[in-house]
Protein backbone atom coordinates (compact mmCIF):
# COMPACT_ATOMS: atom_id res chain seq x y z
CA UNK A 1 0.00 0.00 0.00
CA UNK A 2 1.36 3.40 -0.91
CA UNK A 3 0.22 6.81 0.16
CA UNK A 4 -0.28 9.74 -2.19
CA UNK A 5 2.82 11.38 -0.74
CA UNK A 6 4.97 8.35 -1.47
CA UNK A 7 3.64 8.21 -5.03
CA UNK A 8 4.49 11.86 -5.68
CA UNK A 9 8.00 11.39 -4.29
CA UNK A 10 8.49 8.38 -6.57
CA UNK A 11 7.31 10.42 -9.54
CA UNK A 12 9.74 13.19 -8.72
CA UNK A 13 12.57 10.70 -8.43
CA UNK A 14 11.79 9.24 -11.86
CA UNK A 15 11.65 12.72 -13.37
CA UNK A 16 14.96 13.67 -11.84
CA UNK A 17 16.67 10.45 -12.95
CA UNK A 18 15.54 10.99 -16.49
CA UNK A 19 16.72 14.56 -16.71
CA UNK A 20 20.03 14.76 -14.83
CA UNK A 21 23.14 12.70 -14.37
CA UNK A 22 24.98 11.87 -11.17
CA UNK A 23 28.66 11.25 -11.72
CA UNK A 24 31.59 10.61 -9.41
CA UNK A 25 34.00 13.54 -9.25
CA UNK A 26 36.97 11.15 -9.05
CA UNK A 27 37.74 7.68 -10.27
CA UNK A 28 36.85 5.68 -7.22
CA UNK A 29 36.66 1.94 -6.87
CA UNK A 30 34.85 2.18 -3.56
CA UNK A 31 31.13 1.69 -3.57
CA UNK A 32 29.50 4.90 -2.43
CA UNK A 33 25.86 5.28 -1.62
CA UNK A 34 24.54 8.57 -2.93
CA UNK A 35 21.40 10.39 -1.87
CA UNK A 36 20.27 13.55 -3.63
CA UNK A 37 17.74 15.72 -1.82
CA UNK A 38 15.92 18.49 -3.64
CA UNK A 39 12.84 20.57 -2.97
CA UNK A 40 10.47 22.68 -5.03
CA UNK A 41 12.48 25.82 -4.29
CA UNK A 42 15.29 24.70 -6.61
CA UNK A 43 15.26 27.27 -9.43
CA UNK A 44 17.47 25.45 -11.88
CA UNK A 45 17.56 21.85 -13.01
CA UNK A 46 20.88 20.10 -12.46
CA UNK A 47 22.43 18.67 -15.60
CA UNK A 48 25.50 16.98 -14.15
CA UNK A 49 25.79 16.45 -10.41
CA UNK A 50 29.31 15.40 -9.50
CA UNK A 51 29.63 13.46 -6.27
CA UNK A 52 32.70 14.09 -4.12
CA UNK A 53 34.98 11.24 -3.23
CA UNK A 54 34.91 10.30 0.43
CA UNK A 55 38.39 11.39 1.64
CA UNK A 56 40.42 8.24 2.20
CA UNK A 57 41.97 9.44 5.46
CA UNK A 58 38.56 10.43 6.80
CA UNK A 59 37.22 6.99 5.93
CA UNK A 60 40.23 5.29 7.50
CA UNK A 61 39.93 7.32 10.71
CA UNK A 62 36.13 7.03 10.70
CA UNK A 63 35.54 10.78 10.45
CA UNK A 64 32.15 12.03 9.27
CA UNK A 65 31.24 15.61 8.43
CA UNK A 66 29.83 18.05 5.93
CA UNK A 67 30.67 20.99 3.71
CA UNK A 68 28.52 23.68 2.11
CA UNK A 69 29.61 25.27 -1.15
CA UNK A 70 27.89 28.38 -2.52
CA UNK A 71 28.08 29.49 -6.14
CA UNK A 72 26.25 31.25 -8.93
CA UNK A 73 24.76 29.60 -12.00
CA UNK A 74 24.98 31.50 -15.25
CA UNK A 75 22.47 31.43 -18.09
CA UNK A 76 24.32 28.58 -19.79
CA UNK A 77 24.12 26.47 -16.64
CA UNK A 78 27.74 26.80 -15.72
CA UNK A 79 28.85 27.15 -12.13
CA UNK A 80 30.66 30.36 -11.32
CA UNK A 81 32.67 31.52 -8.29
CA UNK A 82 32.21 28.49 -6.04
CA UNK A 83 33.31 29.12 -2.46
CA UNK A 84 33.15 26.97 0.62
CA UNK A 85 30.81 28.66 3.07
CA UNK A 86 31.41 26.24 5.93
CA UNK A 87 32.86 22.82 6.51
CA UNK A 88 33.53 20.56 9.44
CA UNK A 89 36.96 19.61 8.09
CA UNK A 90 39.17 20.89 5.28
CA UNK A 91 39.29 17.37 3.76
CA UNK A 92 35.55 17.61 3.09
CA UNK A 93 35.81 21.20 1.85
CA UNK A 94 38.42 20.25 -0.74
CA UNK A 95 36.46 17.30 -2.13
CA UNK A 96 33.18 19.24 -2.16
CA UNK A 97 34.70 22.15 -4.06
CA UNK A 98 36.20 19.74 -6.57
CA UNK A 99 32.80 18.12 -7.13
CA UNK A 100 31.00 21.44 -7.55
CA UNK A 101 33.52 22.53 -10.18
CA UNK A 102 32.62 19.42 -12.20
CA UNK A 103 28.87 19.97 -11.88
CA UNK A 104 26.53 21.92 -14.13
CA UNK A 105 22.89 22.89 -14.66
CA UNK A 106 20.58 22.88 -17.62
CA UNK A 107 20.92 26.12 -19.62
CA UNK A 108 18.06 28.57 -19.66
CA UNK A 109 15.71 28.23 -22.60
CA UNK A 110 15.54 31.08 -25.07
CA UNK A 111 12.23 32.33 -23.70
CA UNK A 112 13.54 32.40 -20.13
CA UNK A 113 15.03 35.49 -18.58
CA UNK A 114 18.80 35.33 -18.33
CA UNK A 115 19.11 35.60 -14.61
CA UNK A 116 22.16 34.67 -12.61
CA UNK A 117 21.11 32.50 -9.71
CA UNK A 118 23.01 32.21 -6.47
CA UNK A 119 22.61 28.97 -4.59
CA UNK A 120 24.34 26.60 -2.17
CA UNK A 121 24.80 22.86 -2.02
CA UNK A 122 25.59 20.89 1.13
CA UNK A 123 27.45 17.60 0.99
CA UNK A 124 27.15 15.29 3.99
CA UNK A 125 29.82 12.65 4.35
CA UNK A 126 28.55 9.71 6.37
CA UNK A 127 29.80 6.20 7.05
CA UNK A 128 27.33 3.38 7.31
CA UNK A 129 28.31 0.17 9.09
CA UNK A 130 28.41 -2.79 6.78
CA UNK A 131 27.10 -6.05 8.16
CA UNK A 132 29.29 -9.04 7.42
CA UNK A 133 27.72 -12.42 7.20
CA UNK A 134 29.95 -15.11 8.59
CA UNK A 135 30.27 -18.16 6.42
CA UNK A 136 30.84 -21.43 8.21
Amino acid sequence: MTTAGQTSVTALICLAVASSAIVLADDSTRVTRITHMEDASSDRMPSVTAVPQYPEIARRDRIEGEATVCYTIDARGRIRRPTVRRSSHKMFAKQSLKAIKKSSYEPLRSNQKAAVVKTCRTFRFLLKPVAIEEIE
Partner: peptide
Protein backbone atom coordinates in the same frame (compact mmCIF):
# COMPACT_ATOMS: atom_id res chain seq x y z
CA UNK B 1 33.91 -2.74 11.71
CA UNK B 2 33.69 -2.21 7.95
CA UNK B 3 31.89 0.89 6.74
CA UNK B 4 30.51 2.06 3.45
CA UNK B 5 30.71 5.73 2.44
CA UNK B 6 27.37 7.44 2.10
CA UNK B 7 27.22 10.90 0.55
CA UNK B 8 24.15 13.06 0.81
CA UNK B 9 23.82 15.94 -1.63
CA UNK B 10 21.43 18.44 -0.13
CA UNK B 11 20.11 21.08 -2.54
CA UNK B 12 17.20 22.10 -0.35
CA UNK B 13 16.84 25.77 0.40
CA UNK B 14 14.45 25.06 3.23
Amino acid sequence: HPVSPNIIIDDRKR
